[in-house]
């Protein structure tokens, strides 16, 4: 059978592979090469070695964006996951109306980042107006604004993954722990959490990478204001590419480092939480 399928390579596999090569593979390899060159239109690239990388690090905006992104990611990953887990616990007790709550909490996740950004710009500016400031008055407001927005968008998503995980915990295990006299906190710590570890792995991965790569919401909510202080890495890279000519190489070097960071964080996190899963 394998042989007869093999004859149909051009029909089954070729279209996807061609599209993938053009949209992803070539741009990816070209991107790595170009990060070591100076160019404006790809055709005029000249080799400059690690120049772009040193330029990127001596660029205050990049270092600033890196810190802002790291801080934002830590705060939003923790708050999203704690709140989503808490809601999932409340919604897995077989209460009436659980489905309606689930539907409502998940909804913001379907709205696009640009639209989300403008919704929260209205709300947050409306609140801050009473204190006679705006969202772009200080980086502090932009930071917490983004955290609130991100929570609003992702809590429902993570909640339904946690719900699926918690529903898989065998009921008799919890009953047994109750009979043995465990407190509800003890059950949570020693029974529920270890058993939903796979869901925690997934949720941490999704919130980590989504927070770290945030772009649309950042663009719409503050666009980096005041003076680029609330620009995250993705926005800073975009601005380097399309904001100032002659910096395309630096932009590409930043993009390569961004990719490496995302890859390292994702792999380290997966390895750590997967190990926890096996232990249990």
């Amino acid at each position: 059978m394998e042989k007869s399928i093999k004859k149909y390579f051009a029909f089954f596999a070729l279209p996807t592979i061609v599209a993938f090569t053009i949209a992803f593979l070539i741009p990816f390899v070209l991107g790595i090469y170009l990060s070591f060159t100076e160019f404006t239109t790809v055709n005029d690239a000249s080799w400059v070695g690690l120049d772009n990388y040193t330029k990127a690090f001596s660029n205050q905006e990049f270092v600033n964006a890196l810190w802002f992104t790291v801080k934002f990611t830590i705060v939003s990953v923790i708050s999203i996951n704690v709140l989503a887990f808490f809601l999932a616990m409340l919604l897995t007790k077989g209460r009436r109306g659980t489905n309606i709550f689930r539907t409502a909490f998940f909804m913001p996740n379907l709205i696009g980042g640009i639209v989300l950004g403008y919704i929260w710009q209205l709300i947050l500016n409306g609140i801050l107006y009473k204190y006679e400031v705006t969202l772009t008055y200080s980086a502090k407001y932009g930071f917490w604004g983004l955290v609130i927005l991100m929570c609003w968008q992702m809590i429902g998503y993570m909640m339904i993954i946690y719900i699926a995980g918690i529903q898989n915990v065998p009921k008799d295990l919890i009953e047994a722990a109750k009979i043995d006299g465990s407190s509800s906190f003890g059950i949570l710590r020693n029974v529920t959490i270890p058993l939903v570890m796979p869901a925690i792995t997934i949720c941490l991965f999704l919130t980590l990478s989504n927070s770290f790569k945030l772009f649309d919401q950042n663009l719409a909510l503050t666009n980096g204001a005041p003076s680029k202080q609330t620009a995250m890495l993705a926005l800073d890279i975009f601005n380097t590419f399309y904001g100032k000519t002659g910096y395309e190489g630096v932009g590409q070097a930043k993009a390569v480092m961004f990719f490496l960071l995302v890859a390292i964080i994702a792999i380290v996190q997966l390895v750590i939480t997967r190990r926890k899963e096996i232990e249990n």
């Binding site: 990816f28 070209l30 890279i237 990719f259």
Partner: peptide, 27 residues
């Protein structure tokens, strides 16, 4: 096919900014 499978899977981790500029040029 084995190599293709791993290449497809690893591509999921690459952020859009990495290929943004070059993909636009290729397009």
């Amino acid at each position: 096919t084995k190599t293709m499978y791993y290449v497809f899977v690893s591509s999921m981790i690459v952020p859009f900014q990495m290929v943004m500029f070059t993909m636009t040029k290729v397009a």
